[in-house]
């Protein structure tokens, strides 16, 4: 398989994720779409690592996975806190993140 196939696939997944972030309003789904974008980046990193025959890109992808996990945990914590305060789970209602 040409490496470029993987890169194109990664570009498409990234754009689907970006479209989701721009159009959906539930912060849960926006987090899911962020996951899509991060995973598209991971796919590109691993494809380039394969192309160069170098394991460093895979290390990079692993660190991206760690950062994505942290982002999910914090994002879900914010959503649970919003629910606790009986706010509507809608990003348009929360245009500012003040205490």
């Amino acid at each position: 398989m040409d490496i470029s196939w993987y890169i194109v696939l990664s570009a498409f997944i990234f754009c689907i994720g970006a479209a989701g972030v721009m159009t959906r309003r539930s912060p849960l789904v926006i987090l899911l779409c962020l996951e899509l974008m991060l995973n598209a980046g991971n796919l590109a990193l691993i494809a380039f690592a394969r192309m160069a025959g170098n394991v460093e890109g895979q290390i990079f992808a692993l660190i991206v996975m760690v950062v994505a996990a942290c982002e999910v945990v914090i994002g879900l914590g914010i959503i649970v806190a919003m629910y606790r305060r009986k706010l509507r789970i809608d990003v348009d209602d929360l245009a500012e993140l003040r205490g």
């Binding site: 470029s4 194109v8 570009a11 192309m51």
Partner: peptide
């Protein structure tokens, strides 16, 4: 992005990998 990837004349991109 697709144009950039497909249309780029990067010879290395068009490979089976190392």
């Amino acid at each position: 992005l697709t144009i950039a990837v497909i249309g780029s004349s990067l010879a290395a991109l068009d490979s089976q990998g190392a």
